[in-house]
Nucleic acid binder design. Structure first.
Lengths: 239, 239
DNA sequence: CGACGGATTGAAGCACCTCAACGGGAGTGG
DNA sequence: CCACTCCCGTTGAGGTGCTTCAATCCGTCG
């Protein structure tokens, strides 16, 4: 869900970010090599297994993160256990858009994930010293805001069929261009999908089965599919 | 929904922003008087009657706005007429958090409203020249993002009773501190509330009646109420 | 193989929606 | 001042889309 970055100069082979797969995608993409090297010094790499928690809701927001690999979910629990997933973070996405003292959402690894971790204080200093980074962060926040508001429409007004179709489109939309019959894999479980779409897993399952039966999509595995009829899928997603 | 600003030096009486009621609340609050005067020159005041549209979804984002009085709603329509309100803008709030070329949501005046309008190009130049403004915009975006995600929980997982109770708390939360038996007025119609909460008007009406019958709130008019039992209201809102 | 967790499918229930009637305040005109 | 209308909100009765509960399937792993 990160926006595309301006190309940065080539890095030297010994640069700590040399083999980062998402360098240009991530917020760091706007930094000059020298600055980037300096920046990276403050940020060790952290690994999380599937299911592990990166930050707890209401934890002190001591660090910010840049996701370089894997998949995270941002979620919130109600007292009785109901869960809502506010969004997924893909490689290149930034975790820590807040000026509050504590995180508002729990971030957990859906699949094994790799993150660059930066102490917030140092990160804030870096931001203050690098206007380009500040602008980039604003762009990321604005983009996430638009995505969250779009999700409000889905949760507030769409039917189960429309929600699941929209979800498929969101997944497909991560590939550019969106083409039919291209294999798309998603690491999240039916439970995650349900909690993201405000449905129950049984409903998600039924709707996926219906899309498959209608030959709009094709299941190529439990966590992968192909779009068989893009036009129809878009139609279903918008009501 | 705006965050509190640092106090600014006193303005001269002839300053165009001298009698702005939300100066310190709005994004302009971080600007020095001289800069502010310069800034304001680029921004004429616009008035909108209740029901009028400030920006249409998919319109070119040629301007940004600062709301100085009234109330706006941000909404999106599905092809068949279903509507979702993504949020309300109160005085001091900023309209135009996006780097896209077009607006993603329609903004309409719920009540007669007054806005400062700035051409986006000039505004962007101002932002680039004023790091404090840039930081402030980021803070606003981060805050709106948190609010939108909180709303996702409401729309995805809360019952009708919980939604309406939460809405009452949001309204009450705009007064600091939240005290019982203080009159709170809201200019939006039941239809607006319903489209904000992802419910139908009838359901909103029934739930409000139920809260009233349970003596949790007290209706003091069609568009005003008092919190009679804050603890109970909070309990109902959280499930 | 048997056990386990995740996914699917079926049948019944319920929360909210839909449709419909009614109520009440604001504005208008006699 | 009242009669009328209009709009918004409220209330009631019946319908439905998603949930709930339950059984089964299937791939994985010991």
């Amino acid at each position: 869900m990160a926006t595309r970055a301006a190309p940065v100069p080539e890095l030297e082979r010994d640069h700590p970010c040399f083999d980062c797969a998402v360098r240009e995608l991530a917020v760091c993409g706007v930094l000059e090599p020298a600055v980037l090297r300096d920046f990276k010094k403050s940020g060790p790499i952290a690994h999380y297994a599937a299911g592990e928690t990166v930050v707890f809701e209401a934890d002190a927001a001591a660090n910010v993160y840049s996701l370089t690999g894997g998949l995270l979910r941002l979620s919130k629990l109600l007292p009785d256990g109901r869960r809502q997933i506010a969004g997924f973070l893909f490689p290149g996405d930034f975790l820590g858009i807040t000026l509050e003292e504590e995180h508002a959402f729990t971030a957990e690894a859906v699949a094994p994930s790799t993150l660059c971790r930066f102490p917030r204080r140092q990160f804030d200093a870096f931001v203050a010293a690098n206007p380009a980074l500040e602008r980039r962060l604003y762009a990321v926040a604005a983009h996430e805001l638009a995505a969250a508001r779009q999700q409000l429409v889905l949760l507030g007004r769409k039917t189960a069929t429309e929600r699941v179709a929209s979800f498929m489109l969101i997944l497909a939309g991560r590939c550019h261009p969106i083409v039919e019959d291209q294999d798309i894999s998603f690491p999240m479980s039916r439970a995650d999908i349900a909690d993201y779409l405000g449905l129950r897993i049984e409903t998600v399952s039924r709707e996926i089965s219906a899309l498959k039966a209608a030959r709009v999509i094709q299941l190529t595995g439990r966590q992968s599919f192909r779009v068989a009829d893009l036009g129809r899928l878009e139609q279903l997603a918008e009501g």
